[in-house]
């Protein structure tokens, strides 16, 4: 009896050990990736200097000019655009699924959203190239090529929709039943309950969803290269209307690496790895913010 028990006990321990090893492996891998990128990037930080690299406005590798500011601004603007377009739709979708939709609608809509998450990035890029870019080009502003922040933001908004919708829906569903019942008992309508009680109660979960969406947006590469134009400029409005800044071309941090890495040597290559370091830090910051938001919720 005793022997049997300890056999099962040891088997359990062995498996626990293996699982722990797997978990450690994940940490080691992320640590190694970070370290290797940093080693490759180090000469760039040393020769260019951290501040000139981050705040330099000129990126001309042929002239040994490496300023990352246009790409940082590009990444931030396109993410801002995607969040502005994608988050309201995502949260509305989550609210609809969690609170309003009859079960059969949920059964159709939820797999559809999951499918959206499974479509490869390059296919979104193709869609953007074939449909969005020509559509955006119709906006009659001189210098508008269709390629640029607006097309990229729309593509990104669709791409972050599953992240935002899924996590927001979980947050809305986990709002305590008593809150809803209390609100309804006080005479509020279903709609008033959603707006006044459920959404505020799910706020921190929704914030986490938005931040994770931002992380997804910052990391997106292929679809961005295909529709954003990749010009190394700090985007400016094309005419007196400040909104036309979204018709300007731009380049993202991810695009900067992907477009140039195949030709880069020497300091140019180091500078691209340094771009990777900046991106790495940015995404780590965003993810920690999401974790903080999640923790506050629980």
């Amino acid at each position: 009896m005793k022997g049997k028990k300890s056999e099962a006990f040891w088997a359990g321990r062995v498996i626990e050990g293996i699982l722990l090893l797997d978990a450690l492996l994940a940490i080691v891998v992320i640590f190694l990736i970070g370290l290797l990128i940093l080693i490759e990037a180090w000469p760039a930080f040393r020769k260019i200097g951290f501040v000139p690299f981050l705040l330099g406005k000129e990126w001309r590798p042929g002239k040994e000019l490496y300023g990352l500011l246009p790409m940082i601004v590009g990444s931030i603007l396109v993410t801002l655009g995607a969040v502005t377009l994608g988050v309201p739709i995502g949260v509305a979708l989550a609210t609809f699924l969690a609170e309003v939709a009859p079960p059969w609608v949920q059964k159709v809509v939820r797999p559809a959203i999951e499918l959206l998450a499974g479509i490869p990035s390059v296919v979104y890029g193709l869609f953007g190239l074939a449909v969005l870019v020509p559509l955006v080009r119709q906006i009659p502003v001189p210098g508008n090529s269709g390629f640029g922040l607006l097309s990229a933001s729309v593509v990104l908004a669709v791409m972050i929709l599953p992240t935002v919708a899924n996590i927001s829906e979980d947050a809305i569903r986990s709002v305590a039943r008593e809150y809803r019942e209390g609100s309804l008992a006080l005479g509020a309508t279903h709609w008033q309950t959603i707006i006044g009680v459920v959404l505020p109660a799910a706020r921190s979960g929704i914030v986490a969803a938005v931040i994770l969406g931002i992380g997804r947006a910052l990391g997106e590469t292929m679809a961005m290269i295909m529709v954003i134009g990749n010009s190394v400029i700090i985007p400016k409005p094309l005419n007196s209307n400040p909104l036309t800044i979204f018709l300007s071309q731009a380049r993202t941090l991810t695009g900067n690496i992907a477009v140039e890495i195949s030709y880069a040597t020497g300091l140019h290559e180091n500078a691209l790895f340094a771009t990777g370091v900046v991106l790495f830090i940015l995404i780590m910051l965003v993810n920690s913010m999401a974790h903080l938001a999640m923790r506050r919720r629980s």
Binding site: S145, G229, S231, Q249, A258
Partner: peptide, 10 residues
């Protein structure tokens, strides 16, 4: 220099 406004394709 080629203008920064140019769309760059890889």
């Amino acid at each position: 220099q080629i203008t920064g406004q140019a769309i760059l394709q890889p």
